[in-house]
Design a protein around this nucleic acid. Sequence first.
DNA 1: TGACGTGGTGGAACTGGTTCCATAGTAGCA
DNA 2: TGCTACTATGGAACCAGTTCCACCACGTCA
Lengths: 337, 337
Amino acid sequence: MAATIRDVARQAGVGLGTVSRVLNNSPLVSPVTRKRVLDAITELRYSPSQIARSFASGKTLTVSAIAPFFTRPSVVERLRGIESQLTASGYSLVVFNVETVARRDACLQDISRHDRCDGVLIISLTPREDELLALHEAGVPVVLIDTSAAGMHGVRIDDVSGGELAVRHLIDLGHRRIGFVGDSIEQARAFNFTSSRDRHSGYRQMLAAAGIALRPAYQRHGVHDRYDARILAHELLQLADPPTAIFAASDTQAMGVLEAARDLGRRVPADLSIIGFDDIDVAEYLGLTTVHQPLFMSGQRGAELLLRIIGGEAQESPSDVLPIELVVRGTTAPPSA
Amino acid sequence: MAATIRDVARQAGVGLGTVSRVLNNSPLVSPVTRKRVLDAITELRYSPSQIARSFASGKTLTVSAIAPFFTRPSVVERLRGIESQLTASGYSLVVFNVETVARRDACLQDISRHDRCDGVLIISLTPREDELLALHEAGVPVVLIDTSAAGMHGVRIDDVSGGELAVRHLIDLGHRRIGFVGDSIEQARAFNFTSSRDRHSGYRQMLAAAGIALRPAYQRHGVHDRYDARILAHELLQLADPPTAIFAASDTQAMGVLEAARDLGRRVPADLSIIGFDDIDVAEYLGLTTVHQPLFMSGQRGAELLLRIIGGEAQESPSDVLPIELVVRGTTAPPSA
DNA sequence: TGACGTGGTGGAACTGGTTCCATAGTAGCA
DNA sequence: TGCTACTATGGAACCAGTTCCACCACGTCA
């Protein structure tokens, strides 16, 4: 059917190796021969088979990304960063969406067996001990984004500091009664998510540093979405002694808190201050005060790092920590009276 | 290094073909032999090379999706539908993000040459005549999502009817001065987007049907994002005789219109009614009246259709039209006075 | 003049599966 | 008992590239 490299060789009156050399831009071809080959390629409308190429060379020019909940704006933004970096380097991106624990485990196991990609990017999911071992044994280059693990390369932020940053902002404004809304502990454990957990640590540490007692009733955990966050915030706001400020572990959850405030007629920020985390696209639209993290860049850097590892460049610093920044908008203010 | 099928054959004391048959669940293997082979596989920790498999069989078990502006919530939702359907069928998804016209053209050209995937899903981008020809010639199965083209399979909605539906709602409420904010005509032409154009047609037809004269000043076009939509809405609202209602060609653009109303102190819906299109996730959050289209399902159906085509099942009906629905929320009301 | 190096070239061997043909074994049947 | 038919099996050929070794021609240098 389609022309093969042998057809081209015959047509051009040269050997197989020469055509291969032309295809791979080897300098060891004389200009005259090169032209003859190129002419034959054009004439036969030849296009090399990528699969045969991968098969013979062992390189697939493909990278996999494993991402939980693909629809979360923060994840999408990271994927966009990954895609931009990969296509710039001629690599393709295969995407795996993880929405259940079973699939999470299946994906992480599969990597170790697949030879379908040259490397893997794992977003927000932290491999467990046994999985780390399997990955190491399989020898597949892996870069973690938004997490880290012993002996693994990664690109992340300091979530504990981020939590501290958010809570310090609230304390600086004069708040003492500060609530927290974050991910369900069971879900986080099942998927092995760490960001909400770490931001929560930051929350606790900063309160402790300010001499504010921790109140268990002020700390709520639920599924990472607007709906659960809204319910949790309802609970917080209906306490006898409700918080005057709430730190949500993500902007998505902050949106749920905003809804709850609206439901209960609390004015934001007059009656209630709200701060989120991530600085996703709609945060600006909603005027949400939040902690900005470079999402697009995390994907870009992660992909770049992975490609360097694939290319055989040894990386001294295993983990890249990106800067975060407080973005004050309209949902935080000093507590009223 | 890793065990090959020949190692397994030797270990199990059987022939190559038998191992291959076991791997492919052929019934032509006796239970005893099958067990021997499976034991050898376990013992050698053998895992078949996917690439070699693709190479030999010509099937890649991979599907490509070409999507413009990956970050748009509507596109993400479609991709999620695609991914869910594909993984359920054991296929992988390679994603190509298109953000420039050059990349659009490159992607569409590449498909015809690549043998890297078994089929292609194209989201929102309509191939041109010459591209259609090339695709046809290449013989790659293609399914279009959110568009259609002569002789191509597709999954879409009726955007003209959608535009009519939105505008009829406004007319029914008593509006006569109705503005439109949609995609820039140049950009739409360059990418060959059609949805905003068709929704605009629906707008014009419904106004004509209601005997309302078209006013060029009421129809504005800009880049498909919040920022441009905000500026365009500003222009509309500052006309001497401003519209009492605005139909935005997408929810994203409706968000820009909402911002403009806020900027200028117009109350929504008292002073200004706003209707969007798509019913993306935040539309509910914002209480935006809009035209709902089944985004997730469009991806799912498109992938399903593509897999059937790849499987060799002839499809009689080339184009699948999904239902749309008016969702009335809080941003539309009768005009005041 | 002969030894040596080097740029340019051809082609066999190899990658790890699938496919298909040949063949052995065995049951069914007249 | 011999013929047929069908199951179970082995293994060569094949997919389309890359890689590497052998080799030639030609210039350089002692």
